[in-house]
């Protein structure tokens, strides 16, 4: 299937700072595509370019296989960086403008306000909203007119834990309905829980991209301790299926081949006459993988 968005060799500098260096990737239709990177890695710049807010120094991008760009943006719901609304107008009136520009029906406003839980405050002026409410309204505006694609830049900014969970489940629901979602975040947890694909940026360079399972294959780790650490290390080196041993904080960290479970290690050690005082299975998080990639 044709990618929803195709990015080729995009570069962008701000003065002497190069924000993006020759970045290329495709966003497959139907995916939840995470753009991941530490602060200042170029995520927002990337999204700004594909939404025609920023002008790339070089490279091209195309939506829906080359649709005219203004027309394409009308079918994309976007939240970029901050919620941008007319402060002196209410939520419902602000959405009137959004609907008019997007050429969506006015009646859709009630649905999206309901979806983001702002129905009761829909006639309050935007400037009276809390940060979380502003963010909700921005997400609601992005959903107006049932766009085919959502572009969300740090969508859970300013939301409380319940709000974050809501947005996460909203993203999953929308994706099930067939909407492609492009989401930029530095919150790995957020990405890990919802994304099917990721692109990882670091200082404007694309490090990796692809299906999340390929890019961030999780490797489990075992932690062990015993009274005689040197002896423990010596005998574990002779055990099959242990691929790496690292001593840190008086604990041995073991990288294991698939199929090696904690009980195997335990019985192997006791068979060699060593009693373990500590045995722990640690799922390697996306966070540590990410740190490994970007630092």
């Amino acid at each position: 299937m044709e990618p929803v968005l195709s990015i080729q060799n995009i570069s962008k500098s701000y003065g002497s700072v190069q924000a993006l260096k020759n970045v290329s990737f495709d966003v497959p239709a139907g995916s939840v595509f995470g753009v991941l990177g530490p602060n200042g890695s170029g995520k927002t710049t990337m999204l700004g370019i594909i939404l025609d807010i920023l002008i790339a120094d070089g490279g091209t991008y195309s939506w829906f296989g080359g649709m005219q760009k203004d027309a394409a943006r009308k079918q994309i719901g976007s939240l970029l960086e901050t919620p941008n609304f007319y402060h002196y107008m209410s939520a419902i009136d602000n959405l009137e403008i959004t609907a008019a520009i997007r050429q969506a029906g006015l009646e859709d406003r009630e649905r999206v306000l309901q979806l983001v839980g702002l129905t009761e405050r829909k006639t309050s002026k935007f400037q009276t909203y809390s940060l979380g409410m502003k963010q909700r309204l921005a997400i609601g505006a992005a959903l107006l007119g049932r766009p085919k694609v959502l572009v969300l830049d740090e969508p859970t900014n300013g939301l409380d834990p319940a709000g974050i969970a809501e947005i996460r489940s909203l993203i999953k629901t929308l994706n099930k309905e067939g909407i492609t979602i492009i989401i930029a975040s530095h919150l790995l947890d957020e990405i890990e829980k919802v994304c099917t694909h990721v692109a990882i940026l670091k200082k404007g360079t694309l490090l990796l991209d692809g299906p999340v399972d390929d890019v961030l294959r999780s490797e489990d780790q075992l932690e062990v301790r015993a009274a005689d650490m040197q002896e423990l290390q010596r005998i574990l080196q002779s055990m099959d299926g242990i691929t790496k041993i690292r001593l840190a904080d008086n604990t041995l960290q073991l990288a294991c081949a698939p199929g090696i479970e904690p009980e195997h290690v335990n019985s192997f050690c006791s068979g060699k006459g060593i009693v373990l005082s500590h045995l722990l299975l640690r799922k390697k998080s996306l966070e540590s993988k990410f740190m490994e990639l970007t630092s």
Binding site: L51, D52, I53, D70, A71, R73, K74, S78, L80, T82, N84, F85, Y86, H87, I97, T98, I101, R102, Q103, A141
Partner: peptide
Amino acid sequence: TYKTNRQNVIDGWSR
């Protein structure tokens, strides 16, 4: 100030 110029374009207006 409100960055609504950006939002107008994001929503589908041309510059």
